[in-house]
Computed example of a mutant assay.
Amino acid sequence: MSKRGTRRCKIKKGDQVIVIAGRDRNKRGRVLEVLPDKGKVRVEGIAIVKRHERANRATGRGGGIIEKEALIDISNVQLIDPETGKPTRVRYQINEDGTKTRIAVRSGAALDKA
């Protein structure tokens, strides 16, 4: 049984992204979780689903209908350029000390906090 390869992921937790496809198209949000092995991300306020949960006395959690964010495909989100506020692709730049920095293609602004 062969395992599917992981996608290279230029999106990190805490990034501001815009949804470019699907029912939540053109909505913006902050990345809560990245799963590169599945090629999925969880974005704050995007792809809200309702789940029926049973009460659990051990954890003290009550039951009911709970709304939470579902996973969406990485290909359906794009990073927001910090300078222009528009969606942008991302490239890497290798610094003199050998570290990689993410750069917005649209404006050339650094996305990583240095």
Rank of each mutant, 00 (worst) to 15 (best):
R61D: 02
G64T: 07
D37F: 10
A114H: 15
G108L: 03
A55P: 00
V41W: 03
I72S: 00
K50S: 06
A21H: 14
N76D: 13
K100L: 12
D37V: 12
E96N: 10
T99E: 12
I74F: 10
I18P: 04
G45V: 00
R89M: 10
R106K: 14
M1W: 12
K68M: 06
E33Q: 13
T84Q: 04
N95E: 13
I74D: 04
V105Y: 04
Y92V: 03
Q78M: 15
Q16I: 11
R28E: 15
R8S: 14
D112S: 09
G63S: 07
P36F: 09
V90Y: 03
N95C: 05
V105S: 08
E69S: 11
D24S: 10
L79K: 11
R54W: 03
E33W: 11
R4H: 10
A55H: 02
R23S: 10
P36C: 10
V90G: 07
P87T: 01
I65M: 02
K100Y: 09
L79V: 13
A47R: 06
C9A: 15
I103W: 08
G60R: 00
L111I: 10
E53W: 00
T101G: 05
K13I: 02
R25L: 14
T59M: 06
R7M: 14
G64L: 03
G64P: 01
K38T: 03
L32G: 04
L71Y: 14
